[in-house]
């Protein structure tokens, strides 16, 4: 195995390690965040949903998909049209 290949392999394993550690920290960190089940009065509101106006979002996705080079992110990439 060449040195370069070894480096790449090491990089890959260390990347996986970093990703795992990050995920564990993130999840354990997350467990100290949040609310009790009876404290969801504000979060339960329709307007606090992450996509509170799905039709607005769908219409916007269609416009920006056909007018710009990027799409998706919030959900799946959109598309399904010729969009000239």
């Amino acid at each position: 195995m060449s040195k370069a290949k070894q480096m790449i392999k090491m990089n890959k394993t260390s990347m996986i390690k970093v990703a795992t550690v990050t995920a564990v920290i993130l999840l354990s960190g997350c467990s100290s965040l949040g609310v009790e089940p009876w404290q969801r009065d504000l979060l339960a509101k329709d307007e606090m949903a992450l996509t509170a106006a799905p039709l607005d979002a769908a219409l916007d996705d269609h416009i920006y998909f056909s007018k710009e080079a990027s799409s998706g992110g919030r959900g799946f990439g959109g598309g399904g049209c010729g969009c000239n």
Binding site: L26, V35, L42, M48, G77
Partner: peptide, 26 residues
């Protein structure tokens, strides 16, 4: 042909705040 993958993390911060992180590959 299109293949989309989407991974998401949603976290309630407190009674007033929620965050979401997504990574997607297309």
């Amino acid at each position: 042909n299109t293949v989309d993958l989407l991974f998401g993390l949603t976290q309630v911060i407190n009674r007033r705040m929620i965050v979401q992180f997504n990574y997607s590959f297309s």
